[in-house]
Simulated scan of single mutants.
Amino acid sequence: MWPLIFEDQPAIIYVDLYVTSIINVNEKDQSLTTQVKTITAWPDSNMKWDKTLFCGMETFVAPKNMFWTPDIGIIESIKTEFGTKESPYVKLIHLGVIASSDILALTTACRMDLYRFPFDSHSCNITLQSTAYSIQEIRIIKFSDTTWITIQSKKTFHTQGEWELISINVTNSITNIIEVIEMDQLIYQITIKRRPLFYVINFMLPVFFFLVLDVMSFFIDGSGTDKLSFKVTLLLSISVFLLILNDTLPSTADKIPLIGIFCSVIFSLIGISLLETILVNFLKAKGAKKILVDTTATVPGQNDNVRDPQSPPDSVKDQNEQQGSCTLDLLKQILTECCAAIQQNQQKKMSLCWTRVASIIDVTFLVLYIFTIIVFLSVLGKLWLYP
């Protein structure tokens, strides 16, 4: 029966909740799975006795189903199970108090902000509330203070996985079911922090090294296709990391996580670098093509009608005419060769101009590229590590 049915004061239920392990944090489902130990104590005037009349016995263990127990539930609970099995006993104290201890595996809803992933921390609530009794019948009070609960939870913490327990804060609150019915609540705010070393080593450092390799690729000889192939390989590698990241982060985030910005910007920078390499190679190939055309151009030779000066002339007159014609042909040949040399120099200067433009674009882009990377990483690091 209700132990205070003939009393006017509400029953004071004392509760302690200790977090013993963090089993799972599901970012996509926005849920937290923990193992907790709860200690509940409530008054029962029918179970009060004088210990001097019973051989000094102060406590006594009895079956739980023989006594009234408070119906305290967890509002955020998605799934609640007993850690091993439900304890079938309660402890009776001669002062008229009944105490119960249970180990529960809780899966509770928790709203998570993954903006600073993997350097993120979250605060999840476990709200204890009676399902049937109002504040005039039951008051839920914390048995220990916040500092003691945090210290004891850290001492009994079983797991050393991805998550670290920071603190447990306990507050009381009153909620209205309807206008005339008020329910007492005891809110445990659990603050946890992610250990980022795994993601830094296996995710962030490889992406950063890809960016460093892209910067160093500017020193590769751009005459062939090796530079383009190298940059395309880097771009595909970043795409694989973005697919892995898509499976980790929830799709319903309010803000784009910084790690998503980190990968997307690096992906864009490598893509722009690839386009710049294509342009530079095009300009260099255009200049090389002009040089090749000029070097393969034919130079007109001597006149076939010019006789060999050693051949004997038929007469002195023919000899004079032949010498005059040979001199004229030699002058024409010299003039033709001079014009060809001037034209070849002009074409060579034009091809060198294309190559010079390509070199200027490459050096300017490299300076701006490095400056952009430094500014981006500085701003992102400040947002990441110093919110």
Rank of each mutant, 00 (worst) to 15 (best):
V293E: 14
M204T: 10
D214E: 14
V215F: 03
L269N: 05
V280G: 08
V240T: 13
L211T: 03
M204W: 05
S325D: 08
D318R: 05
L236V: 07
N303M: 04
T327E: 12
I256D: 07
S273T: 06
V265G: 00
M216Y: 10
V306E: 15
V207C: 08
I266L: 06
F282G: 14
G260L: 02
L279Q: 14
Q302I: 11
N303I: 02
K231E: 11
V316M: 10
L243M: 05
G324T: 08
P250F: 10
I270P: 00
T298M: 09
N305C: 09
F267L: 01
V232M: 13
L249K: 01
S239D: 15
D314A: 14
F203V: 06
Q319D: 13
L213A: 06
D308Y: 12
K255E: 13
Q319C: 06
V306R: 14
M204P: 04
L274Y: 09
A285S: 14
D226F: 08
L236G: 03
S268V: 01
S223M: 07
S264M: 11
F210M: 10
L274V: 10
L274D: 05
D308L: 09
D314I: 15
P313Y: 06
V280H: 03
L330V: 04
F209P: 00
F218L: 04
V240P: 00
I244C: 01
N305K: 07
I278P: 04
K317V: 03
L330N: 15
I291F: 08
T252C: 05
Q319T: 02
L213T: 02
I291T: 08
V215C: 11
F262Y: 13
G287T: 03
N281E: 12
L228Y: 05
G222Q: 09
T252W: 02
L235P: 00
I291Y: 03
L205F: 04
S239E: 15
I238A: 01
F208D: 00
D308C: 11
D304F: 12
N305S: 12
F230S: 11
I291Q: 06
M216H: 09
S237N: 14
F230W: 05
A288F: 06
P250H: 07
F210D: 03
L274C: 05
F282L: 13
V207S: 04
D318T: 08
L275T: 10
G287L: 04
N320T: 10
E321M: 11
T277P: 04
F241N: 00
D294N: 14
D318L: 10
V212R: 15
L283M: 14
S217V: 03
S217D: 14
V240R: 06
D214S: 15
N281G: 15
S217N: 12
D254W: 02
L234Y: 02
E276R: 07
F241K: 01
P257E: 09
L235T: 01
S239N: 11
S239Q: 13
P250Y: 11
I259N: 01
T327R: 10
